[in-house]
Write a protein that binds this DNA or RNA. Sequence first.
DNA 1: AACTCTTGTAAACACCGTTCACTAAAACCG
DNA 2: CGGTTTTAGTGAACGGTGTTTACAAGAGTT
Lengths: 238, 238
Amino acid sequence: MTEATRRERLRAETEREIRQAARALLVESGRDAVTLRAIARKLGITAPALYRYYDSHDALLRQLCDDICADMATALHTNLAAETSGQVGCKVRAVCHAFRRWALAHPQEFALVFASPRDPIGADQFGAVFLQLAGPLIASNEDANHVDEEVPEVLHEDLVRFQQVLRDAVAEHGVTLADDVLNLGKIYHVVQSWVRLYGHVALEVFGRFPFAVSNPEPMFDSMLDQMLQEIGFTEVDR
Amino acid sequence: MTEATRRERLRAETEREIRQAARALLVESGRDAVTLRAIARKLGITAPALYRYYDSHDALLRQLCDDICADMATALHTNLAAETSGQVGCKVRAVCHAFRRWALAHPQEFALVFASPRDPIGADQFGAVFLQLAGPLIASNEDANHVDEEVPEVLHEDLVRFQQVLRDAVAEHGVTLADDVLNLGKIYHVVQSWVRLYGHVALEVFGRFPFAVSNPEPMFDSMLDQMLQEIGFTEVDR
DNA sequence: AACTCTTGTAAACACCGTTCACTAAAACCG
DNA sequence: CGGTTTTAGTGAACGGTGTTTACAAGAGTT
């Protein structure tokens, strides 16, 4: 039944416990508390033993980032699946809301994965997760009326590259798209939306709005309305 | 001539050197390198001596944040003063560009001040600096056509509070405003602009765009165009 | 049973923030 | 001036950290 040997099972189990302990420490006490010795204490072993599983403290943090991204991806997909309405706009809205909710519920994780300047840590994965969701959604929005001429020519090169990234993401779900479904105008608005979504959520999580916002959710909703309208989701019924 | 005693001068000088050393360490090797012992080494003293100047490592980091914010404020004001065109739109554009340039040139400082989840560290100061600049600029834009009815009612309460913050900021420059100059519609768009500005800059500094952007500046310009147009700066000549 | 590989330990090194007792010099004061 | 107080700095120490090294004990293999 179990393919793995006894030793492999034990090793996998220990590794699982390490990740779990690291995660708990991060959530409870922040990034600086994710210490090799603290993790080891939780497992009832000594710190050097952890080097049998990870090359360094840094590598362990990177693994932690991966786990977090994976969990977030799961949460977003779950929320998307729960939105059974056929309207694409509603699905996009659901994912955006889920992202905000996740970030607010997991501030330490959000901070770790997001806000490290250019570190190899958590690079790419995050945006990738989100846009793997966005790709199919945007692609399934047939009634957008953007044309490539809307977007400045200097951006074309980068947007075409991004177009390919999105197309690959959609392709992994087994769908290939006609050229005009993911036109540059749409792509451009997706990037703009990502900027606003990330901006709002980060400001809220980090508490960096320039004034005390007593009730940020309506502001988020309001932003989403405008975003969706710009992208071309005409149905505004929430 | 010099009001201060000899001892006070020496103390001030040492404190200056401490801040300078801390800043250099942050820039060179990141947040984790800003260590009491490392700072002390740079000054040729021992670590405990620093406790004559700061209560703790944390307090020193807070001071560092304050310094960074002050420096950024200076940089932004300088850039604003250099924009001698009378058009308000150009001034706003200049400040936004200056912000982006500063953040890209000082990624470690940006990360320290910005992206700590709810820490007392760097709280408020940052947004405050930026919007102390924005207040007068927005207020001086006479030809905006927003009306309060544009913004959802749920947001009124918060926006009115922010309105007061902006009014106070402008008042510190010795100007009092008529009620309709800073109406809620304008305020709302200022917040939206802050979201987008921060979102773009943070994504760029942290390298979290979902694809490799070879030339982000035109994208930033493009965003600014749209932003300014929404706020109501009709003059689009850059 | 003998051998190898794996997983853990204990000790050590260099670094960290922080505290405490202590010194030497500066500033103050009669 | 001489004595006293205030101050800036030291050195040793405590417990914490990441990491390396030598070593032990068990699991798996032949």
